[in-house]
Amino acid sequence: MATGTTPTTPVTEASGGRAHGRAAIAARHLRTDRWWVPPLVTALGLGAFIAYATWRAFANSDYYAAPYVSPFYSPCLASNCTSMKGGADWPLFGDWWGLSPALLVLVFPLGFRLTCYYYRKAYYRGIWWSPPACAVAEPHAKYTGETRFPLILQNVHRYFFYLALIVAGILTYDAVLGFRDPSGDWGHMGLGTVVLLVNIALIWAYTVSCHSCRHVIGGKLRHFSKHPVRYRLWNRVGALTARHMLLAWSSLISVGVADLYVYLVASGAFDDPRFF
């Protein structure tokens, strides 16, 4: 050794020197815990949702059971939609669109979640393994992160946040319509109403807890003392942002459950239990 010293007991796992003078440790990592569990669970969870959502988005059937509409199909922007009484049924795209109308809408929540700071962490770790876990070497020879195309497009998250607000507003309208009965009269509530209400509450919580929202609300300010209302809102949003991962998963599950519920009712698998 350069220091002129020699270990007093034999070195058991020796290897040659590494480039750049780093310690010669050949193993990719020395972690002894189950570091692979979180990325595996993440990959399985995201994979399951993508598989389910793809099936439902292309199915183009059983997405409306008055007064409930699946969140995958609202707003409905093509003429080939099932008629929804008073619902967000706006055929802006006319009748030239022959595919499932869900595809026109899902691009917005998909873009919002795809560029979300939490989901980025989730799929960079769980799917792309960049890195798979902290202090576990990634398998890629080169890394440029979000400095160039296509990942520099992650910066569009702000636009998707603005669009997600509109989508959340429409889904809120859908949830309110759940208080009408199948013939359109107000004063109804069924299990589906509760499912849609829980779903929209979680979607709003997830949307508002977004880091872009936190920034727009007040994070960009330099002097909070000059903007006391925005400062207070920024603190409130910050408390939600700290739970962004929890809200991301719970709203993802709730939107899937809401769609599944509407599918089961619309396909006749069971009748919606009515409270009043």
């Binding site: 350069a2 310690a23 440790i25």
Partner: peptide
């Protein structure tokens, strides 16, 4: 304990009780 011992020229994990 296994403690890494060495320098920029090389080294490895050394066992200790």
């Amino acid at each position: 304990f296994k403690v890494w011992r060495g320098d920029a020229d090389g080294g490895g994990l050394q066992d200790f009780q």
